[in-house]
Amino acid sequence: MMFKMLKNGVLKKGIITTRYPKVAIEQSLRCKGMPFVDMTKCTKCEDCATACPVNAITVTDTVVVDLGLCIFCGACERVCAQDAMKLSREIELASKNREDLKVKY
C-alpha cells in the first residue's frame, strides 16, 4: 500500500516547488507586481490616490507609491483613464530601509 503511494504518488509527482532564489521563479501571466506610472501619460488627476484602499499613492508634482503600504490590488490601474498606472511584473521588492520602499515617479 505504502509502496503504491510512493510509486504512483510522491515519486511520480517529483518536486513541485521552485528552489528560489537559486532558480528564477516562474511568474504567472497575471502576476501583480509593483505599480508603475508612465509619467508621459499621467495627468495628475489623483483618481488613483482616491481609489487606493490603503492610501499608498500621493500625487503632487510627482507620484509617490509607498510599496510598504501597497497591497497590489490593482484598483489604481483600473481607475486610470489615461492608462498611465499599470501593475508591472516586478516582484523582487525587498529593501532594508522603509524609505526605499517609497517609489517616486
Partner: peptide
C-alpha cells in the same frame, strides 16, 4: 501547493486576492 499555484495562474494571487 499545486492548488495555490493554480490560483496564482488564474488570478495572479495565490490567495485569490483582488
Amino acid at each position: 501547493e499545486e492548488m495555490m499555484q493554480l490560483n496564482d495562474f488564474l488570478t495572479g494571487s495565490r490567495f485569490l486576492r483582488g
